[in-house]
Design a protein around this nucleic acid. Structure first.
Length: 225
DNA sequence: GCGACAG
DNA sequence: ATCTTGTCGC
């Protein structure tokens, strides 16, 4: 009866190394209003099969949100999941999948947090720095910070704060459905990220880019087997 | 010291 | 993330 509902004990040496790497990357993050004219919007997501990871990228037109491309990359996972260090486990494979895209998106919506992270470097921010591309994060659960529950109707927003900083927004993208947590990743700002998340959330809780990436991850998963 | 803990 | 059945509602 070791750690009941606990997580596997992380290796202190590994955590120290990853924390140092995060600091280097964090200093490269730029939060600013993007200069692009949003035409192509990408979404990405990863799923697992034992010790392997399957990452998917989809590209949609904006604002029509029609699918124009979808690619994937399947490989071995190098690290275990450690809260706060998700990017080191998933970003490498996402970068390889991204390289297969024929269309270069203006923005990437990532499943996970942007700066709404204990050290302001969630997977969306880290991936943005690695690809030197605008990114924003859309997560289903909180990792850091506190917030009030937004009203039950679609469009309601509440701020997510941590140590006195506004690190994200809690957005109700669908009536009476659990809200999502949005935050800018890299080369992006809070206002734009929030607006795009709401604009691209049609009939579902998750915005289309993330939702479709999630969907295709399941489709390609059967192809890999 | 006690919980919490993206995917 | 993944393991898992039926069930409620649009």
């Amino acid at each position: 009866m070791a750690w009941p509902s606990q997580l596997p004990p992380p290796d202190p040496v590994l955590v120290k190394s990853l924390t140092e790497q995060q600091e280097v990357l964090r200093q490269q993050v730029r939060l600013q209003k993007p200069d692009f004219h949003l035409k192509l919007l990408a979404g990405c997501d990863s799923s697992f099969i034992g010790e392997n990871i399957l990452s998917v990228f989809v590209v949609l037109t904006y604002p029509a949100l029609e699918l124009v491309e979808s690619v994937w990359h399947y490989d071995q996972v190098e690290l275990p999941y450690i809260p706060g260090f998700l990017a080191f486990r998933e970003a490498p494979n996402l970068v390889k999948a991204y390289a297969k895209l024929e269309h270069e998106p203006d923005l990437i919506m990532v499943d996970g947090h942007g700066i709404a992270h204990p050290r302001r470097l969630g997977i969306a921010s880290q991936l943005g720095v690695l690809l030197n591309k605008s990114t924003m994060g859309v997560a289903k659960k909180v990792l850091a910070g506190r917030h009030e529950e937004p009203a039950m109707e679609k469009g309601s927003i509440t701020p997510l704060t941590h140590r006195g900083e506004h690190i994200g927004n809690v957005i109700r993208t669908k009536d009476k459905v659990k809200p999502v947590f949005v935050s800018p990743g890299h080369l992006m700002d809070m206002e734009t990220a929030t607006a795009i998340a709401l604009q691209t959330a049609l009939k579902h809780k998750l915005p289309e880019p993330t939702r479709l990436a999630d969907h295709y991850a399941e489709v390609f998963k059967k192809e890999v087997r």
